[in-house]
Simulated assay, not measured.
Amino acid sequence: MSATSLIPRPLAELPWRVILLVTFIAVFGLAVLYSAAGGSLEPWAMKQGVRFFVLLAGALVLSRVPMRLIERTALPFYLALVALLVIVELIGAMRGGSQRWISLGVITLQPSELMKVAIVLILARFYTLLPAGQVRAIGAIWPALALIGLPAALVLIQPDLGTTLTIVFGGLVVMFLAGLPLRLFIGAGLAAIPVALFAWFVTMEEYQRKRVMTFLDPESDPLGTGYHISQSKIAIGSGGIDGKGFLQGSQSHLDYLPEGHTDFVFATMAEEWGLIGGFIVIALFALLLRWATLVSLNASTRFGKLAGGGLTMVIFFYIALNLMMVMGLAPVVGIPLPFLSYGGSSMMTIMICIGLLMGINRTARTGVQRGLS
């Protein structure tokens, strides 16, 4: 009798490679949060650990939901979140000058985070239902732009520039994967210039404009708007090749590095683990993205391919924008680093993406598409 025969089939069929991969990243993140708190599980590491394992279990449950059901519920899911975004504008809770949350008593929900997933699913559903011959027609463009533009506008006025960019990016990726010609995206980029100018002068808050200007010249105000980026660069650079050592980071422990447990957690890690630690983290994320890309490419349905590609790029956008932000290569827009940054909303979004990708992978492997007929 083989060892594998002793393991229940549902347990043996779990995607253990990706489970172990994300668990390793998350556990390493817990070590960073433990160090950022001065060698204590409170107030971040313990809560983050509980969140991760609860959300990992939720992702595994989500992966068992039939893809046909996910596809059919994409529109109700999207519409419900649009309604919640409107409610946020009316009675949403304020934090740090932004109105992004709905208090539900036990939990606080941030609908804009879930919209990053919903926009991918609804556009994948839209282009799946669209006949192949009509993908390049005007009727395949304006409905998709409307589906993207409505939630993006609602999120932008919260204001939340980072989430707005993620929603737009995820939607455009699905449109590109659906087969729309490249020239349309170039034209859209040119058309976005007046929209960006409108956002700059009308909808963006003063602190957001300062963030963009600081990105261009952080040293112009090192003790003011450029403080975050300057201290992040100092923390990363001072780590050298092998870092200062676990629990030995001075920038975070002496509170020089703002948000060292959330948006700038990579700088906290790099100071103690150095270039080697940074390379390991990036390599692990690369493995995760490689898995997600292969899932999308090998999907057995058009919806799976489009949704898988969009979800992969949402994860990529989180990783890339955060790393660029902490290194001074992009403005500070409040995008957390998956599995390392402290916070429940962003981790929930990432785990939903991973759960859906595992479901797409399971459907392709089994060759069975169960669900609603």
Rank of each mutant, 00 (worst) to 15 (best):
W200T: 15
G237E: 12
L223D: 06
L216M: 14
L216Y: 13
E206P: 00
F201L: 13
S220P: 01
G239Y: 03
M213P: 05
T225G: 07
G237P: 07
G226A: 08
T203A: 12
M204K: 06
I234A: 14
T225D: 15
G239Q: 02
E206S: 03
T203N: 09
A235F: 09
P218S: 05
S230D: 04
D217E: 14
S220A: 09
F198A: 05
W200G: 07
T225N: 15
M213G: 02
S238D: 10
F201Q: 08
Q231N: 15
S238I: 15
G237R: 09
T203H: 09
Y207H: 07
Q208F: 03
L223C: 03
S238Y: 15
Q208R: 00
T214G: 12
R211V: 06
L223S: 11
P222Q: 09
E206W: 01
R209W: 01
Q231V: 07
I236S: 09
G224K: 12
E205Q: 13
S232F: 08
P222V: 03
E205L: 05
Y227T: 07
P222W: 12
F198D: 00
G224Q: 12
G237V: 00
G226M: 02
I229W: 13
S230W: 11
L216F: 09
M213S: 06
K210Y: 03
Q208I: 02
Y207S: 04
W200D: 14
V212W: 04
M204H: 11
M204I: 10
A235R: 10
E205A: 08
I236H: 13
R209G: 06
Q231C: 07
V202S: 05
Y207G: 04
S238G: 10
S232H: 08
I234M: 13
A235Q: 13
K233R: 15
P218F: 05
L223H: 07
F198W: 12
F215V: 03
T203W: 15
L216A: 10
S220Q: 08
S220D: 06
T214A: 11
D217N: 15
M213F: 15
V202M: 10
P222E: 13
A199R: 06
S230E: 09
P222D: 06
T214D: 05
I234T: 05
T225M: 08
